[in-house]
Write a protein that binds this DNA or RNA. Structure first.
Ligand SMILES: [Mn+2]
Ligand SMILES: [Mn+2]
Ligand SMILES: [Mn+2]
Ligand SMILES: [Mn+2]
Lengths: 217, 217
DNA sequence: GGCAAGATTTAGGCATGGCTAAAAAAACTG
DNA sequence: CAGTTTTTTTAGCCATGCCTAAATCTTGCC
């Protein structure tokens, strides 16, 4: 399918959307083999359930999965995942900017609303917010036509010793967000990769970019 | 249960919430026997499905239903229904006031979001909107503690010949809303109960109050 | 290379909320 | 008021998305 052409929107259940999104997200945060086991852990379902859902999405042409191998997305699967992620991150931004949520309160609510708001709703809040490029945790918001640029950054627990600027923080665990906020670790803040005082687990949730790099993308 | 005391919030599925809401609403708009058949028609399910769901909600103490008789709500069922209706109407008001929806666009979206927004979300938009008393169609918004006052009004197709003011219009059919808007028939507008030019079907969706009555709730 | 440990898939169930078709009850109607 | 029509309930079935337990495949280690 050539760029600029749009496939007719497939319809997905909330569950299916979550699986698509998690396959995309696991690669992003920890790019190793995406097993049904990792999916199951992330989605809090049994390995058997993840196996069955992956098989269904493979049969519908949205995932690929060599037996006992790594789960991946087809082009249409990736496109569907990005649509869900766009909804999720726009909703989070809306809740913080317009409804005075704190950044540790938004993820769980977005996790539900991402499956139930209309295209119109998303378009309206996107316009109301001025087409934001990032969500409250520094995650990039995919555009309506399916683009998504990953920030040029490394995980804090893998970074070399240097001064750096915080780019994004995983929103999966509200406790981590509160811990970070208490230490001033928010997107845009400066720190040194050895002197931040976070546990290794918490540091794995933070992405940084060396201060020496220019402030692009 | 004495007023001011709160029962622990029961959890309902989206389907269950719809049944509770529809039982409440059918009485409000056309207060005759609420049969499983009427429920089925309104919810677009088979009579058999409605029968089964009513039986389940009866067994859980939220509805009453003498065999072959009229379906009714218990006190806790009524309270649950009012909570759903409050969410629905606040969401509609929010969509019109904050996201520039038109009044014929909001019902379908609210029908979905009413089951998925959190208590926090509802509290925030209620505050943002300044605790509104009515939705865009003139329907009263129940308060957080379960009060709901019905407007003192009659259906336009049953009203005696007189001048009257429009109080509310059913939002169930977007076409009716557009027809009314085109004729200037919106909550607060004046008309004569014989000279409005609506079909009988459309007029059944409009509630009016005689102009001579004082303008109280 | 062989074998135990671990990961993955398959097999068999269950709950929810729908459906159709048949049975039973109620409501008209001549 | 007896028969017919309509409404309501019951019986049996299906799809979705979970589950546990068992079988099977892969991996790591001696
Ligand atoms: Mn999130
Ligand atoms: Mn989700
Ligand atoms: Mn409505
Ligand atoms: Mn609804």
């Amino acid at each position: 399918m050539s760029p600029g052409t749009h496939a007719p929107d497939a319809e997905f259940s909330p569950s299916e959307e979550n699986y698509l999104k998690v396959v995309y997200g696991l690669r992003e945060w920890d790019p190793q083999k995406v097993t049904t086991g990792r999916l199951a852990a992330k989605l809090a379902v049994s390995p058997a359930s993840a196996s069955a859902m992956v098989a269904k999405l493979v049969s519908r042409g949205f995932m690929v999965h060599p037996p006992y191998g790594s789960v991946g997305l087809t082009e249409s699967g990736r496109s569907a995942a990005l649509k869900v992620i766009r909804r999720h991150r726009l909703i989070e931004t809306f809740l913080v900017d317009q409804l005075d949520y704190t950044w540790d309160e938004v993820h769980d609510e977005a996790e539900i609303l991402e499956h139930t708001v209309s295209e119109r709703f998303i378009d309206r809040i996107d316009a109301l917010l001025g087409h934001p490029e990032g969500d409250p945790h520094g995650d990039p918001i995919p555009t309506a036509d399916g683009d998504s640029r990953l920030p040029n950054a490394t995980r804090l627990d893998h970074a070399p010793a240097e001064t750096a600027v915080v780019v994004r923080i995983s929103d999966a665990d509200p406790d981590v967000l509160r811990t970070c906020a208490a230490k001033g670790i928010v997107p845009g803040a400066a720190l040194h990769t050895r002197g931040h005082g976070l546990t290794d687990d918490d540091a794995a949730a933070v992405w940084v970019r060396p201060t020496t790099l220019l402030d692009e993308g």
